[in-house]
Design a protein around this nucleic acid. Structure first.
Lengths: 258, 258
DNA sequence: TGTACATCAGTGAACGCGCGTTCACTGATGTAC
DNA sequence: TGTACATCAGTGAACGCGCGTTCACTGATGTAC
């Protein structure tokens, strides 16, 4: 009985190992081939006949899905563990840690980052199973902001209808302000949508704070994407980490994380 | 003599037309196949034998390069013409026009946008000839900021060493400010790099203003990229244009464009 | 204006590859009695 | 513990496609005298 189970476990373990090896090889090929993943090339590198891979993944797209999920999970875990190491009350520190965790993972895994944050793969529709893993980074940021709101650190901008109205801070401040204090208020459809989103993912977060959080989220990934996709070539060359850190801090200030 | 020239022109014109048609077909195929452009598929749709395409483009990569240049030029032209329609003194209006021009083009040409702003094409190295067309949008933004500086509209944040130091504006303002006024100053390597960039592309623009301009530039394309690559799914659905407009205004305020 | 020659566009066959997926099969490993 | 049967991993051949690029060629169009 016990020996039977052990034997079973050995077979299962070998299976798991081979499954991992297939994914590892496929990921390595992402770097040279992009999302044009080839089952046959994977099999070749495995030293197996191409049809053997079908014992492990029912189709090429399923292998691609597995890779995507793994990448989202790795990125999410990298961000989470970096962020978890920081004192809960230090919201700015948590934001910086999460941000650098994301960027560091992306720099270490550029092809994988391109797979999940790059151009949609033609003909490939990501299934529902990718949604959860994909949400880990955004959940982290949402939690951070919710914590800030709960702690009273993030005050909702109260004056003006939307978040695009305000008075100008003096020169010398790092203000993302409307200099003339005359920007039109947030459009009604946007305000309604933000309220809907807030109700769904972070009920305690006011609309204006949520909008700022989304801005910061986009900026974070925008910088990483530009850096990885070559937009900084002949522009920002020697200070990319500092530049990213600067952007994180600007956004933290905008959101009110400190 | 004249008839000879006319005949010559006819041949040349036919050649130009076919060249354009090849590019048009190739672009249409981008939508379904992504950057995995197939010369044979293009030839098939043209009703020609595949080798005939080599009369027009020496290789698949040259065709891809031609597409990339066309797309950059189209996007640049779209941004430029939208921006050119606005009164020169209206910096905010020019910024908004350029931004919406970019987004509108991207929405109308999602596959083309993915080609130029998406994941790098594996195995393809963009030649020097793409650099000029690629720079049109950024040149436009740079010119806008330089105009603002020249007009005295954009004051360089003067206090503090870098651009991440400042005092907090009161609640209700659209400030991207450091709430505690205690963010560390801009890193030395970043400051030096910004000075180098400014000297190269916009000598009159102070380092801090340039940094803000780059932030705005990244945010603009970050939002468009997220929208086009599906990141807004189940999040921002009904107010994407308003959302983008809001982002543009937040960034304009940050940079000081008005 | 007419003729000889040169240029050019497009053909069709071929080279040497690649791909995903199916299917009947062998042989090893695991299971039940 | 031993034997019969079931499960599973991996093979090898095949189906029916795809691709970029080269090359000798035909026939039409353009050019020079």
């Amino acid at each position: 009985m016990l020996s039977d189970m052990t034997a079973k476990n050995i077979r299962a373990r070998v299976r798991d190992e081979l499954t991992s090896e297939i994914k590892a090889i496929a990921r390595r090929q992402l770097a040279t081939e992009g999302a044009n993943l080839s089952l046959r090339a994977v099999a070749r590198e495995l030293g197996m006949v191409s049809s053997a891979v079908y014992r492990y993944f029912p189709s090429r797209d399923d292998l691609l899905t597995a890779l995507i999920i793994d990448c989202y999970d790795e990125l999410g875990a990298a961000a989470e563990s970096a962020e978890a190491a920081v004192d809960r009350a230090d919201l700015l520190g948590r934001w910086l840690a999460a941000g650098h965790g994301i960027r560091d993972w992306a720099l270490a895994n550029p092809a994988e980052y391109a797979l999940i944050y790059g151009s949609p793969v033609p003909g490939y529709k990501a299934p529902e199973t990718t949604v959860g893993p994909a949400a880990r980074t955004t959940n982290l940021i949402t939690a951070l902001i919710a914590d800030g709101v709960a702690a009273g650190t993030l005050a909702a901008p109260s004056a003006g209808a939307g978040s695009t109205t305000g008075s100008r801070p003096g020169p010398g401040s790092e203000a993302l302000a409307d200099p003339a204090g005359a920007v039109s208020p947030m459009a009604a459809d946007l305000a309604a949508e933000l309220d809907r989103i807030a109700a769904l993912i972070a009920p305690a977060v006011p609309r204006e704070v949520l909008a700022r959080g989304i801005t910061a989220w986009i900026q974070l990934f925008g910088v990483v994407t530009f850096e990885l996709f070559g937009r900084f070539q002949n522009l920002i060359e020697d200070s990319r980490r500092s530049f990213f850190d600067h952007q994180l801090r600007v956004m933290a200030a905008y959101v009110g994380l400190r």
